[in-house]
Amino acid sequence: MSTIRVPYEKLPPAALAAIEATTGPVLSTESPAEGLNSAVAAKLHTATGTYFVKALPIDHRWVWTQQREADVASYVRSVAPALIAHTVTSGWNILIFEALPGRHADYRPGSADLPKVADLVRRVGELPAPRIELRDATQRLAAYVSHEADLQHFAGDTLLHTDWNNSNVIIGDDTRIVDWGWATRGAPWLDTAYWTIWLIAAGHSPESAEQYATHIPSWQAASTAGLNTFAAANARLWTETGGDHPDPWTKRIMTAAQDWHEYRQSRPSRHTDK
């Protein structure tokens, strides 16, 4: 699912000039290992401050995620970095964000970050749903349910992030989440459920991961059938993504999704239907 990374300096001169018209002259750059959905992802150090740039070629199959991030940015300012500029030039779609100080969240059992992330999941779930075009959870998961009627569990009008990879969560003076390109509209408990898979991937048992989830109010809106359907759908999704020879990163998430699905199959009564 990753995109071939292009060094920031390899952008066309006109694109570099357009970026520096906003940031000022770039003194140095850093390219993170994470965030491989962007062809260009770089932290820029300038005389006026530090910025984060994401860019994709305009003919890339995921370039629509750049527009989605731009569209949603003003609605998620309380939980995400500020969008400074969005420009399309020289065949590139470019987003310039404020660079968040801090580090990636630690999801491992016992981490002091876990209550902070749980609070962030809650805060995201309380954001008003913007009246802009968003993907719908029922559409995103339609190919992975056994029966079309099961999709009703995922329907809703809540703004969802859907990618709770710990590298998207920045722990600093505040806890915030980046990479809103897959913003989705759906049931209020779905982001908590997505986070549950990442907790399992970080070493939690399914039971322990669900215990963290219970601290988030939206989780209480989920039914047993809804959670079982979601866990099964994600097990299928990640199995399809991994294929016969998944890379280690994908294998870890694929195994977590499968483990959660098996847990919910074996103990379906652990969440009470509403």
Score class of each variant (00 low, 15 high):
S2W: 08
V6G: 08
V6F: 07
P7E: 06
P12R: 10
A17L: 02
E20R: 11
G24N: 06
G24I: 03
P32R: 11
P32C: 13
A33N: 10
G35E: 04
G35C: 06
A39Q: 01
V40H: 01
K43S: 12
L44P: 02
L44N: 09
T50A: 12
T50C: 13
K54F: 04
A55E: 02
A55M: 01
A55V: 07
I58R: 14
H60T: 05
R61N: 11
W62C: 11
W62N: 14
W64S: 12
T65M: 14
Q66T: 13
R68W: 00
E69F: 02
D71F: 01
A73L: 04
V76C: 05
R77T: 15
S78K: 03
V79G: 03
A80F: 00
P81N: 11
L83T: 07
L83C: 07
T87M: 08
V88A: 13
S90G: 06
G91V: 09
G91R: 05
N93G: 11
N93Q: 13
I94E: 01
I94L: 08
A99V: 08
P101G: 10
P101N: 00
G102S: 12
R103D: 12
A105P: 02
S111P: 01
D113L: 08
L114E: 10
L114C: 06
K116P: 03
D119S: 11
V121Y: 03
V121H: 10
R122E: 08
R123S: 15
V124P: 03
V124K: 04
L127D: 04
P128T: 04
P128A: 12
P128E: 09
R131A: 15
L134D: 03
R135I: 04
D136I: 06
D136V: 08
T138S: 06
Y144P: 06
Y144W: 15
A149G: 10
D150I: 14
L151R: 00
H153S: 06
F154I: 00
F154H: 02
G156Y: 03
G156L: 00
D157Q: 15
T158A: 05
L159Q: 05
L160I: 04
L160R: 03
L160Q: 03
D163N: 08
N165W: 05
S167E: 14
I171P: 07
G172C: 10
T175F: 07
T175N: 05
R176C: 12
I177V: 13
A183C: 10
A183G: 11
T184C: 03
L190E: 00
Y194M: 08
W198E: 13
L199F: 04
L199E: 03
I200P: 02
A202R: 05
G203V: 15
P206W: 02
E207Y: 09
S208M: 10
E210K: 07
Q211D: 14
Q211P: 04
Q211T: 15
T214L: 09
S218L: 02
W219T: 15
W219R: 14
Q220H: 15
A221K: 09
A221Y: 10
A221E: 13
F230K: 05
W238D: 06
E240W: 02
E240K: 07
D244S: 14
P246I: 10
D247W: 06
P248F: 04
T250N: 08
R252G: 11
T255L: 12
A257D: 01
D259V: 11
D259C: 13
E262L: 05
E262M: 00
Y263M: 09
R264W: 03
S269H: 14
R270G: 13
